[in-house]
Amino acid sequence: MTYLLPLLGLAAVHLMAAASPGPSFVVVAQTAVGSGRRAGLLAALAMMLGAVAWAAAALYGLQALFARFEWLYLAMRIGGGLYLLYLAVMLWRHAPEPLSEPSAAGHNKTGAAQGFVRALLLQLGNPKVMVFFGSIFLALLPAHPPPWMQAATLAIVAFNEFTWYALITLLFSGGPARSIYRRAKFWLDRIMGGALALLGLRLALLSR
């Protein structure tokens, strides 16, 4: 029970954070509705891998490195913000193009690979994810968690991240969602591009 309650608290807090709207939601939803379910699930997998990488970094001390070398944290934050701005520009530029149907095998593979890389770079380009994990780990976990508890922590992060974004994928890759997106693609892409641009500026310019 000594270890169970902190892990349950961690699972609840992290799931609420994962479910909060942000650039990850926008990217996974746009990938699912634009490139299909397979691409969306691979994007969900990428979000999971990126989150686990940052969670492991928080567990094993990279946060202390960022605290010692603030320029490194600043450089990664600015890089992540610029990447979000790049995604925003791409969405804005391609908004007038019609929605392509992922029917051919080659198209499916290309869209899925692009969705995976885009989502992974997005997640790894946001060092605030590690700061979040470092904060909740300090607040909820014991000072020196045993190795099995560290493994359980990473497993919880992986399960929450993939499950949430897989649900987003299933919701947005369905026929009704694609039909709505097809009809309103221009304005939806412009809105999502604007949201990513604002989030990118916020990541690059605001302090911790």
Rank of each mutant, 00 (worst) to 15 (best):
A166G: 12
P142E: 07
K128L: 13
V89K: 02
Q123S: 11
L206E: 13
L196Q: 08
A105H: 00
L199V: 04
A39V: 08
A17I: 11
R208S: 10
S20H: 04
G115L: 04
L121M: 13
M149N: 02
E101W: 01
L124G: 01
P145G: 11
A46M: 12
I136D: 09
S35T: 04
L41N: 09
K185F: 10
L170T: 02
W187L: 15
S173T: 12
P145W: 10
A57K: 05
L140N: 06
Y83T: 03
T163M: 13
M130H: 03
A46Q: 10
A44W: 08
G134M: 03
A29R: 08
A39H: 06
A88K: 01
E161Q: 15
G79A: 11
L10Q: 12
R208K: 04
S207R: 10
H107P: 00
A18W: 08
R190D: 06
E161V: 10
A44N: 14
Y181V: 11
T153W: 01
P98Y: 01
A204H: 10
R178Y: 10
L141V: 07
L201P: 04
A184Y: 15
L7P: 02
A51G: 10
A29N: 05
G9S: 12
A11G: 12
A53C: 13
A166E: 10
V131M: 09
L121I: 13
L120T: 07
K128N: 14
G61V: 07
S35P: 00
L171M: 14
F172W: 14
L10D: 07
G79Y: 03
T169W: 09
Y181R: 13
A32Q: 11
L201K: 05
A19D: 04
E101Q: 12
H107W: 07
G134N: 08
H14E: 12
R182L: 10
I191M: 13
I78H: 02
Q114G: 05
P176S: 08
F69M: 03
S100V: 08
N108C: 03
A67E: 14
Y3F: 12
W71K: 00
S100I: 03
W71V: 11
P102E: 04
W54D: 12
L59G: 07
K109N: 00
Q114S: 05
L91K: 03
A44V: 06
V26M: 12
R183H: 13
I136E: 06
A32V: 11
A155M: 12
L84T: 04
E101P: 00
A184I: 03
A57W: 03
L205V: 14
L99P: 00
T153E: 01
F25V: 15
W92P: 00
R37A: 14
